[in-house]
Structures are given as structure tokens and as C-alpha cells.
């Protein structure tokens, strides 16, 4: 069936079964590869995107359930988000495979909580696995970005 989606501000038509996870529509239909597959069962966070500003696991979001919801993916942050600058400053990524999801979770955190505490970071980020163990740099980069984001926040 044909489904209309709004992704990063652009309307897209896709042909997919309604039960297809949004993740695979983004990847296999639209070839938007920034959003990653890691587990398929909402355990790793690699597939995190925003749906109307809320972080969701796209592997567990049937494309038919999205409706008129606005989807934002890592590509939608445009490379200029303060978190992305902070990620580079702290050399956060190792293999990098988890990092799109980490940044999308962090962006949603900062949008809701501009100055997150360690407990806020734990709560928002513990659903995002990093097998390379970049955790302490992720935490540092979020904290570093939080000052800057207070001015420019628009996740």
C-alpha cells in the first residue's frame, strides 16, 4: 500500500505494508541510512528517531501507525546541531554505529531538559547501547552541549 510520511519536513510517498517497521521503510525504501538496525526489539536504541519531537524506536514503530506524525531522523539534524559539534569536540564515536541513535536520544533530552543532571542523562540514555563503550564521552558531550543548546535549542 502507499503511505505518506513527513520526514525531516519533507513529504514522502512510500509503498509498504502497514506492519513494516518504520526503520525498514527509512532504510530499504528511502535509503536514509543514518538510522541504524541493532536489535529490532527496542533494546538497543540504534534506530531512534523523533516522532512529533518524542524519541521512538523505529524498529518497533509500524509505518502504518505514524499517520500525520512528523518524523525527524539524524539526517534532519543537519550536521549543525550543538550535539553534533560537541560529539566531534569530544571525539565521542568509536565504531560510530550507535551514534545516530545516541544523538537522537540526547537531542530529545536536551529539548525537554536543557540542563540535564547525571540522573536525567541516565534516565534518557540508558536505552541506547554502545558496545564500544563511549559512554563517558557521550555524557560529557551532552553536558558540554547543554550550555550552548539553551540558546539555540530546536530539536
Amino acid at each position: 500500500m502507499s503511505i505518506e510520511l513527513e520526514i525531516n519536513g519533507v513529504k514522502r510517498q512510500v509503498a509498504a505494508e502497514a506492519d513494516t517497521p518504520l526503520l525498514w521503510v527509512l532504510r530499504d525504501e528511502l535509503h536514509m541510512t543514518g538510522t541504524k538496525y541493532g536489535c529490532g526489539v527496542a533494546q538497543c536504541g540504534a534506530c531512534t528517531v523523533h516522532l512529533d519531537g518524542q524519541p521512538v524506536r523505529s524498529c518497533q514503530t509500524p509505518v502504518g501507525s505514524v499517520g500525520a506524525g512528523k518524523i525527524t531522523t539524524i539526517e534532519g539534524l543537519g550536521g549543525t546541531h550543538p550535539l553534533q559539534a560537541s560529539w566531534v569536540k569530544h571525539d565521542v564515536p568509536q565504531c560510530g554505529y550507535c551514534q545516530s541513535g545516541q544523538i537522537m536520544s540526547a537531542a530529545a533530552l536536551l529539548a525537554a531538559t536543557p540542563k540535564p543532571t547525571d540522573a536525567d542523562i541516565d534516565a534518557a540514555m540508558s536505552g541506547n547501547l554502545c558496545r564500544c563503550g563511549a559512554y563517558q564521552r557521550i555524557r560529557a558531550a551532552i553536558k558540554d552541549a547543554s550550555g550552548e543548546l539553551a540558546v539555540t535549542a530546536k530539536a
Binding site: G34, E75, G79, P93
Partner: peptide
Amino acid sequence: VRRKDSLAKATGQARYTQDVYLPDMLT
């Protein structure tokens, strides 16, 4: 001496096997 790939990996642009899409490709 810092990483050369941090920006690509912070923007979803780094290319992994999972990201390969070639014309006529099967999965």
C-alpha cells in the same frame, strides 16, 4: 591527533555494510 571520522559518524554519513544500496540489489 584526533579522530578524522567523528563528524561523519555524528551525522549518520559514515558508510557501513548495512548502508550499501546498489541498483537491483537483493537482500
